[in-house]
Amino acid sequence: MNETDLRTVLAERSAGKTSDPAVDRLAGVHRRVLRRRRLRRGTAVAGAALALLALGGVATARTDPSPAPAGPPAGTVDGFPEYAEGARVVATARGALPERSTRLTVTPTTLDLVIFTSCPEPASLPVELEIQVDGHPFFSGTCGGSWSTTVDGWRDVGARVGRPAVLTVRAGAADDGAGGRLPVPPRGEFGVAVGERVPVGDYPFPPRPAPLPPLERPVGDDGEPLPPDALVLRSDPADPTASRRATITWGPAVRAWMSAQTPGRLRVRVAGVEVADASWWDYRAGQQASTKSATWAGEHGLRLLPGQRVAVEVIPERFTGDWLVAFVPTVD
């Protein structure tokens, strides 16, 4: 699983039955691909031993006691939820196979943007979508879900607030989850949308379910449980907005896997350096992941040596349910 796949939050979709045998076969393959991806979400463990010795998390001062309010029900825009992932959809476009490209023009009021995509219907078949902005390569990934972007990334391709930007979206063969490629579906409609981040106070959170869904626990490669020596920091049962800390002995490369029951935000600091900043906007108990620790030197200026004693801190905001952060070993 590469970093692009990890930045892509895949939406769960059901593969509909059609009368076209070719489409049916592709739908079956897609179901298997999604199942493999769900099993591989913990990324590659491959027998690596994690030498992290946790001294235990401790609760500190409450950072944000206010629960996430529920707003009025949100609608849809061209088949996309109007509000999702902390953003409001402001522009959409759709492409119809066998034609493989479509265009979208957006005039942003901010460069804090999210890209949403949908897979070809009627069977939610996978395609790889490549996006250019004003002719500059920008992003690529498997359709379905949302793609987080950065303000600097948009600036690098010439996007500016108040100026129209043209996104060209091309569909191609998707990864089959086993190192190969799937054929492009013979027909179907794929979509792309751009959303602008909105202030937390303006976001229409969904109503809180009762009971809350179970907290999704990170797993290793092929769905195996976490290694017994993996460091796991959990929310304080009495106060899910309390920070948690531990001092550990650093070992092989890891990735921080984060899971939460309710809307909120988690920031993860290692040796005082922020290595992950993740937000949840619904109650689906989803997972998110940091980049590999092997890349933190270049990304964050953080260089850690095996055997070094390191302070780890998780800073939660706005949560009204459980969350956890697990440091899962990776293969570089």
Rank of each mutant, 00 (worst) to 15 (best):
L305C: 09
V166L: 05
G188R: 09
W281C: 11
G144H: 11
F190I: 00
G95Q: 07
G56I: 00
V200S: 15
R40I: 07
E3T: 11
A22Y: 08
G75D: 09
R7L: 14
R103F: 08
A256N: 04
Q132V: 13
V151G: 13
L97A: 09
A256S: 06
T4V: 10
R32S: 05
A246N: 03
L6K: 12
R25H: 10
P209I: 08
A93D: 12
A96T: 15
L226A: 00
M258E: 00
G321Y: 02
P186F: 02
F319I: 12
V194L: 07
P306A: 06
T18P: 12
P67F: 00
V198G: 12
D332F: 04
V310R: 00
V184N: 07
E12D: 14
L50C: 04
F319K: 09
G272V: 06
G179E: 08
R31G: 11
T63V: 15
F139N: 11
E313C: 08
T43I: 12
V9N: 13
W296R: 02
R269W: 12
T330N: 08
T117V: 07
A84P: 04
P81Q: 04
P207Y: 04
G195D: 03
A297T: 14
D332C: 00
G95S: 10
P209R: 05
Q308S: 11
V273T: 05
G28D: 01
D134P: 01
T291V: 08
R197N: 11
E85P: 02
A311Q: 00
G298V: 13
V23Q: 03
L26A: 01
R163D: 14
A22V: 14
Y283A: 04
G153T: 13
T110F: 09
A84W: 06
A242H: 15
A256W: 04
G145W: 14
V127H: 00
A49S: 09
E82F: 03
V310W: 01
F319Y: 14
A285C: 07
G272C: 07
